[in-house]
Amino acid sequence: MSASIARYESFLINNVSTISTLESSLRSITWFLPGRFKDAELASEALTASLNVMSMYHDTLLAKVVKNNPRNRPLLPASLHNRFTKAWSDKNLVYRWIARILELLRFTELVIEMGLRRKVSDKNRWRGVILLEAVKAVLRLVLLKMTRRPLISPPIPEREFDPTTLPPQSNESSPTLAPSSPSYSPPATPDHLRNNHTPLPPHSLLTPPPPTRSDTSVEDYLLPKALTTSSVKPSLSLLNTLSSPQDWLAETVYILRPLVYVSLLVSDKRSNRALVTALFMELVSRNLRRTPPPSAALERSEYARRDKDMLWYLLRGSIWETYTRPKLESLVSRTSQTPVLGLFGAFVKDWIPLINEYYYYTAP
């Protein structure tokens, strides 16, 4: 088994550009599969989940290659999110595996729901969804207790470099070790080109007039290059610990919100109780959470992402049934005869039934 894994890793390193292009192409195809044939949505989501799982494994392997060889490291520094999650993954083995399990559940939860919908009764399907949400809530509470900091999504580092920029590896080297240093030197400059570095004097008619004022001030030039407080902070200190009961309550309410929503949704699907309760918990968590200072860039970006995610309520419950879906259906009917917009309308038309039938397309 280990020999097969080693051969696959070697194949990945030597063909990283081709595999990256293939992943990107397959991801684009999955957006257009729903509605094309029977069970097309299942095929699309199964392919998407497989690509996400393989990409997570590939990122782990490529991160080892980049770490072991300084020549492969990116020029730009890692993002604050990657610094924080990578520091916790390296420090705590339990954090690393819980974070990976959460990502695996996120990648496969919709495929699991589709399989349950086809194989078991509707009641057992919703039991499976509640079980998934309960497992996710427990794992997130464990991470919250472990880190004592607001949860970051996703909890694992993301890919920040282009795999196609990695140099090809030699067949003799281990796929997880740094490649040997190159034994060649750049070609020397030919003799007839060595004296061709003196530029010709510019013509007076082609010389632009001297600028009367600077287009950019010195401050505008230096500000993006200046170090911020987050740049010099230790990676584990990029998020401050939860210091008050109010902070803990805000995070706990936010974590339990999806479980409460699906539980109320199953008990009474015709009522708005689930939607109102989840939205109320979202607003309670938002008002209870602390206001991070301007220097806490990572925490501010996480809270900004949570605020943007509230737009998903337009695709849930009675808001979707009475407002958003009629608007989309009207848009589809108006653009059906338009050459370019008709393609977009047909794309939206294929996705509307999926939002009606499956919970995890718009789950909180």
Rank of each mutant, 00 (worst) to 15 (best):
S330L: 12
L298M: 07
F344V: 15
L331N: 01
L283Q: 08
Y261C: 03
L341E: 00
R300S: 15
T277K: 03
R316P: 03
R270Q: 09
Y261P: 01
R300T: 14
L328G: 01
V284A: 15
R305W: 02
G342V: 02
R300C: 04
P294T: 11
K349Q: 12
D268P: 06
A274P: 10
T338S: 06
A278Y: 03
R325S: 08
S285K: 09
V348I: 15
S285T: 05
N287S: 11
N287V: 09
R305E: 06
E329V: 13
N287T: 11
L343F: 11
G342E: 06
S267I: 08
P292Q: 10
N287G: 04
D309R: 13
N272I: 11
Y303F: 15
L264D: 07
S318N: 06
A297V: 15
L315G: 06
R286H: 11
W320E: 05
T322M: 08
V276R: 08
S336K: 13
K269D: 12
V260I: 15
E302I: 12
A297C: 03
A278I: 05
K308N: 03
M281F: 09
T335A: 11
A278Q: 02
L341T: 04
S271L: 08
T291C: 02
R316D: 04
K269E: 12
